[in-house]
Amino acid sequence: MEIKLQTPLTEERVRALRAGDRVLLSGVVYTARDAAHLRMLECLQKGEPLPFDLAGQVIYYAGPTPTPPGRPIGAIGPTTSTRMDAATPALLARGLRGMIGKGGRSPEVVDAMKRHGAVYFAAVGGAAALMARCVTACEVIAWDDLGPESVKRLTLRDLPLIVAIDAEGGDAFEQGQAAYLRACKV
């Protein structure tokens, strides 16, 4: 059964999620990938404000294709999360509550997630035409010069996600693969 979640997320709600849970996420999330993460770190180092307040928010590691006429957004799916690992603990320390991407995370990110109470969701990599249907609005809010890497505010409606790593450090990749291999041996 899928869990319906609405952003912003509270720590209590996030800490109740478990690796492997199916989630339908609705509400506002922000896109940021490699270049935007570098700029956010620069902002933090210089003491300048970030493009959005991180408290309770979710970052989607994604760069959509251009928006066709009459649609809210082009194709959109997750990029590989581990490239954002180096910047992530600093964002979690400032209240970032969730991330959406694909693939695993570094031990440093998982530690910071446990410490601050955050969740890492996986979206289905390469299912970008289908997932575009779950985005009802898209607006560039910062760093337009980065093109596909600009920071965008998205409004989601029931984006299907899997809790890949929970706030206890539970890892759905490890658990899923181990469970499958155990089942093969029986």
Binding site: A62, T65, G74, A75, I76, A129
Partner: peptide, 26 residues
């Protein structure tokens, strides 16, 4: 879990073809 994910990938390919959308954003 794998069956469900493969179904989504097949559905995605069909939506992309029918609606003239990119299969993947990359």
């Amino acid at each position: 879990t794998a069956q469900g994910l493969l179904d989504l990938l097949l559905e995605n390919a069909e939506i992309a073809r029918a609606e003239g959308m990119p299969i993947c954003q990359d």
